[in-house]
């Protein structure tokens, strides 16, 4: 059989496979359509969306620019602080967990158990943590920090593990030949390899945490979220507008900064 014929025969089977997948996907699509009930749609929806746009275009400038404790600026700084502290807490917690989950450091069963724990930590939605931590520290930004911390652990630890498992151990051999002790090998052989990856991953997570932190206010864990929902519920769309504008600008700035820093870390 020539290769051409082989290919010709291989092709229909592939087609059948694709067809099955396509039908499956279409089926899933139809099935999930049943979840949506168009009767729910508010009759005034159009009017409201028009109001929202109007609010965003005409933001409450006073709220946006003054510097009191209720101002957008203060809330944004608080959100930023929650994201930052949360990232630090998360990074601190993640490092030991990552080493415990790295299959080249600990025995396989232990690594597997830690990974399972990480999956569970990652799957529990942030708001659940938020509601739980409010019982711990009372409502306020501190609960937000703890929430961000623990939600960061899931992803940070996972990416740290990848870095640990990709460690280049050949450099340790050369350090042995130089006459280095185990401690010196860790400090000068392993630490520099991990540092830049860990930093880059952590900065990336900080960027994501900005978004997370901005919704925590919904459960009373500080930041810009609470005033946002409050303004929405009382239909003060120009306040919503100023809060959203501030939030979007801040998040974009942080993203820009994060990309720049990570680029530097990777390229050196």
């Amino acid at each position: 059989m020539t290769t051409v014929e082989k290919q010709l025969l291989a092709s229909p089977r592939n087609l059948r496979y694709l067809l099955t997948v396509a039908i499956l996907v279409l089926g899933l699509f139809a099935w999930s359509l049943t979840a949506v009930n168009f009767a729910d749609v508010n009759k005034g929806g159009l009017q409201i969306s028009f109001n929202i746009i109007k609010g965003i275009v005409n933001p409450d400038l006073d709220l946006l620019l003054n510097v009191s404790k209720q101002s957008v600026l203060y809330l944004l700084v608080q959100t930023l602080a929650i994201a930052f502290m949360g990232t630090i807490v998360g990074a601190v917690l993640s490092v030991p967990l990552a080493f415990l989950a790295a299959s080249n450091i600990v025995p396989k069963p232990a690594a597997w158990l830690t990974r399972l724990l990480l999956i569970v930590i990652r799957t529990i939605p942030a708001l659940v943590y938020g509601l739980m931590f409010i019982r711990v520290s009372g409502p306020g930004p501190f609960a937000g920090v703890l929430t961000i911390g623990i939600t960061s652990v899931g992803m940070l630890a996972k990416l740290y593990v990848d870095a640990i498992e990709e460690l280049d151990t050949r450099v340790l051999e050369s350090m042995t030949s130089i006459g280095c002790t185990t401690f010196e090998k860790i400090r000068y052989g392993i630490f520099p390899q991990l540092l830049s990856v860990f930093l880059s991953v952590t900065i990336y997570r900080f960027d994501m945490n900005m978004r997370e932190a901005s919704i925590l206010g919904l459960v009373g864990a500080g930041g810009v979220g609470a005033p946002l929902i409050f303004a929405m519920n009382s239909y003060k769309w120009n306040q919503v507008g100023s809060l959203l504008i501030g939030l979007v600008v801040l998040i974009l700035l942080i993203e820009l900064l994060s990309n720049k820093l990570r680029g530097k870390l990777i390229k050196g």
Binding site: G45, L46, E212, I215, L247
Partner: peptide
């Protein structure tokens, strides 16, 4: 940039709960 929960919140106003 918009957090999903915020979009959802706005969406509840437009499309109902």
């Amino acid at each position: 940039t918009l957090p999903t929960l915020v979009t959802a919140l706005i969406a509840t106003f437009v499309f109902g709960l």
